[in-house]
Design a protein around this nucleic acid. Structure first.
Lengths: 241, 241
DNA sequence: TGTATTCACCTTGTATACAAGCACCGTCTC
DNA sequence: GAGACGGTGCTTGTATACAAGGTGAATACA
C-alpha cells in the first residue's frame, strides 16, 4: 500500500507545473518586470486555469525567492537593490570558484571540448548580435563547469543564483563591449582550467564575475538615468482592468 | 490601486504558513522520518484544516527539496543516500569556509564574545547530556559565523544546507564522543578566527565538518546494522487507517 | 474645511465538490 | 494454473463557492 508510490511516476505535466514553469521563465528573463504585482485572478484568466494552480505555482516561486509573498496582499516579483546584486554576485563568485576548483580533477576531455566549442561559437556570434544565442552560450559555459564539479548540491545552488541574475545579464549582454569582455573572461577561465592550477582558476573566475558585476551595475545606473529623464517610472503588471 | 500592496502586510499567520512551519520542523528534526509518504487527507485531518493549506505547504517544501513531489502519487520525505550526505557536507564545508573567511574582516567583538560564550556553555553541558541544548548551540555557533560574513545569500544557503542535515546531527550528537569532537572543532575554528589567518580558518572549518561527516556516516552505518538485526525496516507514516 | 466613520469592493485565504488517474483485487478465459 | 481484463476504491488534480480581511472613497459630522 504505502510503498506503491515508488513504482508510480509518469510524465503527464499538471497545470500547476505548467503555470509554474511559465511564470518562472517570464520572471527570470524579465518578461514580467521586477517589482510587478501579481494578481491571482488575472493570471488565472490569462492562463485559462482556475486560481488553484496559480496559487500553488506562486507558492513555489515564493519558496525559491523569485516572488515575495505578502500575506493577504498578494505577490511582488523580486526586486533587487544594487547591494542585493553585489551580494548575489559575490556569493556566485565564491560558489563558482569552488565549482571550478573541484572540476579540475573531475572534468572530462569531452567537457573541455564542449567549453572550447562554446567559446568558438561565442566568438563567431558576437559580430552578428544574436543576443539570445549569446545568453544561452554564457549560461551553458558556466553550467558546464559547475556540472563538471560533480556535486548535485553545488550545481543546484549555482543554477539558482544564476537564474536570479539572468534578467540583468540579458539586459546588458546586448552591448558588444560587454559581450566581448564576457567572452574574454570565459577564455581565461578555460585556459586556467587547462593549466590545472587552482589559484589561477580562482583568479580567472573572480575576474570574470567581477567584470560581469560591474557591467550590470553600469547598465542599471544608465537605465535609471534614462528612466528618470523620461520621467516614467516602473510599470506594474496587470492594471486594474 | 496597484501600489497599495506596498503599504499592507501584517502579522496574522495563515493556516498555510502554520502547516508549512509545522511540517518543516517535523521533517528537519526527523520527527517524520526519511522516506515516509505524506498523504494529504490524513495530514488535513490531523491538523484540522482542509487539504488546501496542506497542499500549498507541501508545494513549498517540495520547492525547498525537503519533500519529493511525485505527480499523482503524493509526496515522499527526502531521503538521503550516503553519497548525498557526503555531497551535502562537502558543499556545506565549502560554503562555510567562504563564510568564515569573509567573517574575518567583518565579525564584531560582540560576535566573537558570543562564540566564546557558546563554547563555554557547550563544555559545561556536555557532561550533563542535555542533547537538545547541545544541538541548539551547535547550530548557533555555525550560524553566528555565517551571519558575520554579512551576506544575505550566503547565510540563506548555509541555513538551508544545515537544515537538510539537521536530523542526522541530532541523531549522533547524543554520543558523548561525538559531542566532544564537535566542541573541539568549534574551539579550533574560533581560535583560527582570532588568529585572522584565512588559511587556518579554512583548515579548521574543513577538519571540523569532515569529522562531523564521518560521525554521521558512522552512526548511519551502525543504525543500519541495528535495524537489520531487529529485521524491522523503515516505517512509513500514516498507515492506511 | 478637516476629520472620523461607514460601507462597498477587491483582494487573498480556506473549504469543499468533483474529475481523473492509477493500483489493487477479483474474476473470467484459455 | 497463468495471464488478461475490468471494476472498485484509493489517491492527487482542479474548479468553484464562500469567508475574511483591508483599502479607499463617499459621507456624515464637528
Amino acid at each position: 500500500m504505502s510503498e506503491s508510490v515508488t513504482k508510480r511516476r509518469r510524465a503527464g505535466a499538471s497545470k500547476t507545473e505548467w503555470v509554474y514553469a511559465d511564470l518562472r521563465r517570464k520572471i527570470i528573463v524579465g518578461e514580467i518586470p521586477s517589482g510587478a504585482q501579481l494578481f491571482e485572478n488575472p493570471l488565472a484568466a490569462q492562463m485559462q486555469v482556475s486560481r488553484t494552480p496559480i496559487r500553488e505555482a506562486l507558492q513555489k516561486l515564493a519558496a525559491e525567492g523569485l516572488v515575495q509573498a505578502i500575506p493577504r496582499a498578494g505577490y511582488l516579483v523580486e526586486s533587487l537593490s544594487e547591494a542585493d546584486i553585489r551580494d548575489l554576485y559575490a556569493t556566485r563568485t565564491a560558489i563558482e570558484q569552488v565549482s571550478a576548483k573541484w572540476a579540475l580533477n573531475r572534468i572530462t576531455p569531452r567537457e573541455i571540448e564542449l567549453l572550447e566549442l562554446n567559446l568558438e561559437e561565442t566568438d563567431s556570434i558576437i559580430a552578428t548580435g544574436k543576443t539570445q544565442r549569446m545568453i544561452d552560450l554564457d549560461r551553458e559555459f558556466h553550467l558546464t563547469i559547475c556540472q563538471a564539479a560533480r556535486s548535485k548540491k553545488l550545481y543546484q545552488i549555482s543554477q539558482l543564483l544564476s537564474d536570479h541574475t539572468l534578467k540583468f545579464r540579458i539586459a546588458c549582454i546586448h552591448f558588444p563591449d560587454v559581450a566581448i569582455r564576457a567572452a574574454a573572461g570565459h577564455r581565461s577561465i578555460l585556459e586556467a582550467i587547462r593549466s590545472g592550477d587552482p589559484n589561477l582558476v580562482g583568479e580567472a573566475v573572480e575576474v570574470h564575475l567581477e567584470t560581469a558585476t560591474a557591467d550590470i551595475l553600469d547598465y542599471i545606473e544608465r537605465a535609471r538615468f534614462e528612466s528618470l529623464r523620461q520621467s516614467d517610472r516602473l510599470v506594474p503588471m496587470n492594471p486594474p482592468d
